[in-house]
Design a protein around this nucleic acid. Structure first.
Lengths: 173, 173
DNA sequence: CCGCGATTGTTAAATGTTGTACAATATGAC
DNA sequence: GTCATATTGTACAACATTTAACAATCGCGG
């Protein structure tokens, strides 16, 4: 999960690259890349950790958020899977678990007898309401509030096209 | 895994927050936060995908990188677990798998009869050499080359302190 | 209306991960 | 030296994810 600037272990010169070019990362690029990786991992870890006292995993919380924002607080399984970037199989298991926890309910889909809605229960909604403020606090404490408003604008401007690119990739993959 | 600016589903006003304050994210903050989340997930997914043809998972690749940069291309299990932010248990399984694949070898530790080294095999090293250029290309194509050099400097300057913060948290957690 | 291909969601089995307990060994106080 | 305590890595069991196969249903061309 990383790349080199320096010779990987003092044994060989820049390895033979196809033909195009040998695109090792520069020192700055590498610092940046590693910082990004580190933040991704650690932030995920920390937010999950701070969700634990509420008996929720990050995955659970994400489902709650998406459903709570959906019209009628429900969503088709496939759409929910797409929205949360999970496989249908994984989502199916996940919803089963959350259904057992009473957060969500599977609901038949009127127009399409194959389909199902995942529907937020009252408990699910209340849980969302209860936990969200804590989660926002975590997000602020460990991420958002560590940038100035100007930085946030700048960072978003830089990141948005990358997000767009990756979203497109996923689409046609 | 997200937060709200808008009323979460047109049902209640800003939920009752402890006392401190009600720190919902502003529109800009939320855009930024969601972009960050999306990039983390999708980039991880895409890089893993492009590693697959080489019969490596992201986790495997990360181990190869760390070991290949380590003195003597080996590292104590615990240190490796720390370096890759995994639990000792998980690392143990992971190394077993990689050992079966011939990429790595468990080696007794002279000074400490409890300890073991995970040692990169010749095959592991060659695999690293072979795969790294492809991986770097992926990282460039989907991330690094999508920023200007100035952006990279700016982004790194903004991210570095956050990485530092999270690293410290982890330390004392 | 028929029938074929695509879509929906689940399932079973293989694989990966996590949490806890454990045996072996080291370390330091006395 | 001897004991108590900490550290190292593994093992087992519980849980989560992935992969592939599947049954049910849709929807459209003919």
């Amino acid at each position: 999960m990383d790349t080199h600037t320096t010779d990987p272990a003092a044994a060989s010169s820049p390895p033979p690259v196809a033909a195009e070019e040998a695109p090792w990362l520069t020192a700055k690029e590498q610092q940046f890349w590693r910082a990004h990786l580190e933040i991704s991992k650690l932030l995920d870890y920390q937010l999950g950790r701070e969700l634990q006292p509420h008996n929720l995993a990050s995955n659970d919380y994400e489902i709650l958020v998406v459903l709570s924002e959906a019209p009628d607080r429900r969503m088709r399984m496939t759409d929910l899977a797409t929205a949360t970037l999970q496989s249908k199989s994984r989502l199916s298991h996940q919803i089963t678990r959350m259904e057992n926890a009473g957060l969500v309910l599977r609901q038949d889909c009127p127009g399409d007898r194959r389909g199902l809605y995942a529907h937020l229960t009252e408990l699910g909604w209340e849980t969302m309401q209860k936990v969200a403020p804590h989660h926002v606090r975590s997000v602020r404490a460990h991420f958002i509030d560590r940038f100035t408003p100007e930085q946030i604008d700048t960072l978003y401007a830089a990141l948005a096209p990358v997000a767009e690119h990756l979203r497109n990739l996923r689409g046609r993959a």
